[in-house]
Lab assay of single mutants.
Amino acid sequence: NQASVVANQLIPINTALTLVMMRSEVVTPVGIPAEDIPRLVSMQVNRAVPLGTTLMPDMVRGYA
């Protein structure tokens, strides 16, 4: 089972991601792999991401 990136807090739209906003968790469906967390830092979300939501590739500008 692969860990995915999950929002550690509410992340408002257009917010640049920081390490404290994300955690890794084994979830279904699988989202962005946890090993990509360092790559996600400073990328912006293109929608509001509620606490506990799995980050999907289409939620992060420039990721996919």
Rank of each mutant, 00 (worst) to 15 (best):
L19S: 06
I37H: 03
R61P: 13
V26M: 14
A16Q: 08
N14H: 08
N14R: 09
R23I: 05
V20Y: 15
Q9T: 15
L19M: 15
L10C: 15
L10I: 10
L51D: 13
Q44P: 08
P12N: 13
V5W: 02
V60Q: 00
P33Y: 15
V60Y: 02
V49C: 04
R39K: 12
A48Y: 08
M56I: 08
V20D: 07
L55M: 15
L17E: 00
L55A: 00
V20Q: 10
T15I: 05
T54N: 02
V45W: 00
L19H: 13
L51S: 14
N8L: 07
G31L: 02
Q44W: 09
V6D: 00
V49Q: 02
L40R: 00
T15D: 04
S42M: 13
Y63P: 04
G52Y: 06
G52S: 15
L17F: 02
P12I: 09
V6N: 01
A64W: 03
M56R: 07
P29Y: 04
Q9G: 05
M21A: 05
V20S: 14
D58F: 14
D58Q: 07
I13G: 14
Q2D: 15
P12E: 08
G31H: 02
D58M: 06
E25H: 08
D36M: 08
V45N: 03
Q44N: 13
P29R: 03
L10V: 10
T53S: 14
G31M: 02
L17V: 04
M21Y: 07
V60S: 01
A7W: 02
R61W: 12
V41C: 05
M59D: 14
V20R: 12
V30P: 10
A34H: 10
L55W: 01
E25Q: 08
L40Y: 02
N1W: 09
L51E: 13
R61E: 06
A16L: 10
L51P: 13
V41H: 06
S24G: 15
L17W: 02
G62Q: 09
S24K: 05
T18P: 00
M21C: 03
P38W: 13
P29E: 13
T53E: 14
Q9S: 10
P57R: 07
V20T: 15
P57I: 08
N1D: 15
V45P: 03
T15G: 07
A48M: 15
N8G: 07
R23L: 05
I32S: 01
N1C: 06
A64H: 11
T15F: 09
L10W: 09
L55H: 00
M22R: 00
I11S: 01
Q9K: 08
L40H: 00
R61Y: 11
V26A: 08
P29I: 08
I11W: 01
V20P: 05
M22T: 02
M21N: 06
L17D: 01
M59G: 03
V49A: 06
V5L: 04
A3N: 06
S24E: 11
R47C: 04
S4Y: 04
R23P: 01
R39Y: 13
T53R: 07
Q9A: 13
P50R: 14
T53D: 14
E35L: 06
L19N: 04
D58G: 10
P38C: 04
A16S: 15
R47G: 07
Q2G: 15
P38Q: 11
V41W: 04
G31R: 02
A48G: 07
V30S: 11
